[in-house]
Amino acid sequence: MKIAVMTPMGHVGKHLTSALIRGGIRPLLLTRNPGRIPKETLRYADAGEVDSTDPRQVVAATRGVDAVYWVDPSVVSANPLADYAQATRSIVEAVGANGIGRVVFQSSVGAEKRHGVGEIDGLAATEVALNELEVDVTHLRCGYFFTNLLMDIESIRRGRLSTVLPLDRPMSWVAPRDIADIAALTLLNPDWRGHRVQAVHGPRDLTWNDVAAILSRRLNYPVRVEQISDRQMRERYLEAGMPPGMADAVLGMSTGLRDDFQAEQQRTLQTTTPTHLSGWVEEELIPAL
Rank of each mutant, 00 (worst) to 15 (best):
M1E: 12
K2E: 07
K2L: 11
A4K: 01
M6Y: 07
V12H: 00
G13P: 03
T17H: 06
S18P: 02
S18L: 10
L20Y: 06
G23D: 02
R26L: 14
R26Y: 15
R26H: 15
P27C: 11
N33Y: 12
K39Q: 12
K39G: 12
K39S: 13
A45E: 01
A47S: 15
A47H: 05
G48Q: 06
G48K: 05
G48R: 04
P55W: 08
P55H: 07
V58C: 10
V59T: 03
D66H: 13
A67T: 02
A67M: 07
V68L: 10
S74V: 15
S77G: 09
S77I: 08
S77D: 13
A82W: 12
Y84D: 08
Q86F: 09
T88F: 09
T88P: 05
R89M: 13
I91M: 07
V92G: 04
E93L: 14
A94F: 07
G96L: 14
N98E: 08
G99P: 04
G99S: 09
I100C: 06
G101W: 04
V103S: 01
V104Q: 00
F105N: 00
S107P: 05
S108M: 09
V109R: 01
V109K: 00
V109D: 01
E112M: 06
R114N: 10
R114W: 07
G116L: 11
I120H: 02
D121P: 07
A125M: 10
A129G: 06
A129F: 13
A129T: 05
L130M: 09
E134S: 13
V135R: 02
V135K: 01
D136K: 14
C142Q: 04
L149R: 00
L149V: 02
E154K: 07
R158D: 11
R160Y: 11
R160C: 12
L161H: 03
L165A: 11
L165F: 15
R169T: 15
S172A: 15
R177P: 08
I179N: 00
A184F: 08
T186D: 03
T186M: 05
P190T: 05
W192L: 08
W192D: 03
H195K: 09
H195C: 06
V200Q: 00
G202T: 01
P203F: 12
A212Q: 01
L215S: 00
N220K: 11
P222V: 10
V225M: 03
E226T: 13
I228W: 08
S229T: 14
D230N: 12
R231V: 15
M233K: 06
R236Y: 10
E239P: 06
A240F: 13
P244F: 10
G245N: 03
M246R: 03
M246L: 08
A249L: 11
V250W: 07
S254T: 09
S254E: 09
T255I: 13
R258Y: 10
A263V: 12
E264C: 13
E264K: 10
E264L: 14
R267L: 11
Q270C: 08
Q270I: 13
T272E: 04
T275Q: 03
L277N: 00
L277S: 00
W280I: 02
E283P: 10
E284F: 11
P287K: 04
P287N: 05
